[in-house]
Design a protein around this nucleic acid. Structure first.
Lengths: 350, 350
DNA sequence: TTGTATGCGTTATCAG
DNA sequence: CTGATAACGCATACAA
C-alpha cells in the first residue's frame, strides 16, 4: 500500500503541513514534532508521489545547457538533438530547459557562462571545452551552489556533479585494436591530427596516446608516423603534404584520424584514387558516414552523441527534481562502426 | 500557456464532462457538441496532462511479459534485468507489470500463454520462440483486442504491434565483414552451429545466411565450411569432431558461431591449446566475455539484450497509456565488441 | 445527452 | 511554530 503524507502525519500525531515542512526542511519544526515524524517515516517508509508533487508545484525548475554552436561545428548537432528529445520527454514536468549556444572561442564561451549565471538556473550542463575558463566557471558555480554536469570532455579537476562521455584513451585503444586486426606484417600506420591553430583538445591527444600505447603492449609493433595539419590551411596544401608523406612511406596502410575530420582525409584519398589505405576515424557526421558507405573510410568510432545530450538532461533532472544521487562518471560505450552496421546506429534514440 | 479541459470546454460552450467524454469517446455526445469541441481542440491544441491524469486514475493498467526462464537459458537474464529497470522507472505510474517465465519447451510456452490470457492484460510482450504456437497465440490476442509486442525474435506473420530486436541477417553480415578484415588470402572459415535436437531457430539461420551471402558479393571468396553440433552430445564428442575437422582443413583460421554458444568452442580450443584461430560469436554472456578477455574469443556481436527488455516495456506503456503510435519495427544496433571495448558495453543502461 | 461535485497526493498560503 | 485548506488538471460517479 502507498504511504502518503497524511498517513505519516496521523501516525506522528501532527498535521500534514508539519510533516511537509520537516521533509523538505522548509520553515521551522519543533524538536518533539521532528522526532515523532522521523520515527513515523522510518516505520512506514514514505516515498513521495512524483505525479502529485508535479501537479501541485508552483515554480518550475530551470536547467541550462551550454554547448558549442552546431552551426559552427557540425558535431554538436547530435548532442543538440538529444537535448531536444529530453526536452520533449520532460515536457509534462515543471522544468524549463534552456539552451545557450556559443561560438567555439574563449570569449564567446565566457560570455555564455556569464549569461548562464545571470539566468539563475537550478542546474547547468556544459561542455568544458576550454580548460582554464571551465575551471573558473566551475568555481563560480560551486560558490553559488548550482550543480553542474560535464558532457563530452573529461575535466575532473572542476569536480562536476557528473561527467558523461567516452573514455578517450580507451577509445584510442579500440581504434588501435582494429588496425592491428586488419594490418599485415611490416605495414605501417599514419596518425593525422587536423586541428585549428593553437586549439588542440586534450581528449584528442588522449585518443592518440591510447592508440600508440596499445601497440607498445603487443608482440610486433608497427611503425607509427605522425602528420599534423592545420584546419585553416588550404586543401591543396593538405593534399600535397599527404601525398608526399605517403609516397615517402610506401608501407603505410592505415590512417588514423583522432577527431571527427576523417572525411577530410577521405576526400583527398578519393580524389587521388589512392584506394588501398584503411582510414579509421571518429564520429558519425554525415560526411564521415557518406565516405564509409562509399568504402573510403573503413571504421568509425562512435560515441553516441545524441544519447550524451539526452542523458545529461535526464541525469540532471533526476538529480535535482527527484533528488537521486547520480554516478560521478558515466562512460558511454565505445562503438565500432563500419559499412555494415552503420544503418542501425543509435537505433532506438531515433 | 497550458490548455486544459476546462479551457476548451469554455470555448466550446459545453461542460468539462462533455469534453472529457468526447476526447475519450466514452458515453454519448451530441453531434452539435462534438463539432464545437472538435473545433475548440483544433484551435487551442489540447495536450492532456499525464501527471494529473495519472493522479486521478482509479484502475491501473496491466502489462504482462512472457519470456523464457533465465534459469534455463542464461541469455534471458539481461532482457529480464531490462524489464526490472523499466518496472522501477514506471513505478510512479498506475501500471502493473507482471512477468511470466516459461521453460523453453512448447507445452510450457502454451501454458504461459493461456495463463497470460486469463490474467486479462491490457498489453502483452512476448518472445515468439516457437513459430506456430506464437502464431496461434497472436490470433487469440488479436481476437481479444489485446495489443502485443514481440522481442528478440522476428515473426512478422503474427503482425505484432511492434517488433524490437536485431536484424539477424544483417548481423551475420557484420560478423562476416570483420572476418574479411582479419583474414588473409586462402584462409578459410568454419561455421559451427551448436543447437538442440529438433530446435533450430530461424534467426540463427538468418545469421548464417547473412554471413555467407556477404562473401558472395566480394571479389575474393574464402572457402566456408559447416559443422553442426548437438547440444545434448558429450563435450568429448564435440572435441573430437572439431579437432578432426580442423586438422583436415588446416587453412581454417576463423570460426563463426551464430548463437550465444561461442564459449563452448572457446573452451575446446583453449583446452587443446589451439590458439591461432579467430572466434567470432554472439551475445555478452559472462562465459563469452570471460573468454574474450582471455583472448580466446576475438569478436562478439552484441544485441543490447537489457535494453530490449527495457524498451519493450516502455514502448508498450507509451502505446497504451499515452496512446502514442509506435514504430512497427525497432531495430537494435548491431554492436561490435572486442577485448578493448567490452567493459563499456551497455554503459548507461547500468 | 449533459453538468456538477468529489477526490487523487502534494504544495503553498494564511490564519492561528 | 502549527493546522487547516485551497489549488493543480483530470477521471469518475451521480444528478439532472
Amino acid at each position: 500500500m502507498k504511504i502518503r503524507i497524511v498517513d505519516i502525519a496521523k501516525k506522528a500525531e501532527v498535521s500534514a503541513g508539519t510533516v511537509d515542512r520537516y521533509i523538505h526542511q522548509r520553515g521551522k519544526v519543533s524538536k518533539k514534532a521532528a522526532e515523532k515524524i522521523q520515527k513515523a517515516v522510518k516505520e512506514l517508509g514514505y516515498e513521495p508521489d512524483i505525479m502529485a508533487r508535479n501537479l501541485a508545484l508552483k515554480k518550475e525548475l530551470k536547467i541550462i545547457c551550454l554547448l558549442p554552436d552546431p552551426k559552427e561545428t557540425k558535431y554538436w548537432e547530435r548532442p543538440d538533438a538529444g537535448i531536444d528529445k529530453a526536452i520533449k520527454e520532460l515536457s509534462s514536468f515543471k522544468v524549463l530547459i534552456e539552451k545557450i549556444y556559443f561560438a567555439p572561442r574563449v570569449n564567446a564561451f565566457n560570455e555564455a557562462c556569464d549569461h548562464a549565471i545571470e539566468s539563475k538556473a537550478d542546474g547547468i550542463i556544459y561542455v568544458p571545452i576550454f580548460f582554464e575558463e571551465s575551471t573558473l566557471f566551475a568555481e563560480k558555480l560551486i560558490k553559488l551552489e548550482i550543480p553542474f554536469i560535464h558532457i563530452n570532455i573529461h575535466h575532473s579537476e572542476a569536480s562536476p556533479l557528473s561527467f558523461i562521455g567516452q573514455n578517450a584513451y580507451d577509445a584510442g585503444k579500440v581504434a588501435a585494436s582494429l588496425c592491428r586486426m586488419a594490418l599485415r606484417n611490416n605495414q605501417e600506420i599514419l596518425i593525422t591530427y587536423i586541428s585549428k591553430e593553437q586549439q588542440e583538445y586534450s581528449h584528442h591527444h588522449a585518443r592518440i596516446e591510447g592508440f600508440v600505447e596499445f601497440f607498445e603492449n603487443q608482440n610486433t609493433q608497427p611503425t607509427v608516423h605522425h602528420l599534423n595539419l592545420k584546419v585553416d590551411e588550404k586543401d591543396s596544401i593538405h593534399e600535397n603534404l599527404l601525398a608526399n608523406f605517403l609516397s615517402e612511406h610506401q608501407n603505410i596502410k592505415a590512417i588514423y584520424v583522432p577527431n571527427s575530420r576523417a572525411y577530410s582525409i577521405a576526400s583527398i584519398l578519393k580524389k587521388s584514387k589512392n584506394t588501398d589505405k584503411m582510414i579509421i576515424g571518429f564520429d558519425t557526421l554525415d560526411a564521415n558516414i557518406q565516405y564509409m558507405k562509399e568504402g573510403v573510410i573503413d571504421i568509425l568510432i562512435g560515441q553516441q552523441s545524441k544519447s550524451q545530450g539526452y542523458n545529461a538532461i535526464v541525469l540532471m533532472f533526476n538529480a535535482i527534481f527527484r533528488k537521486e544521487k547520480i554516478a560521478k562518471t558515466n562512460h558511454i560505450p565505445i562503438d565500432i562502426l563500419n559499412k555494415e552496421n552503420i544503418d542501425y546506429y543509435e537505433g532506438l534514440m531515433r
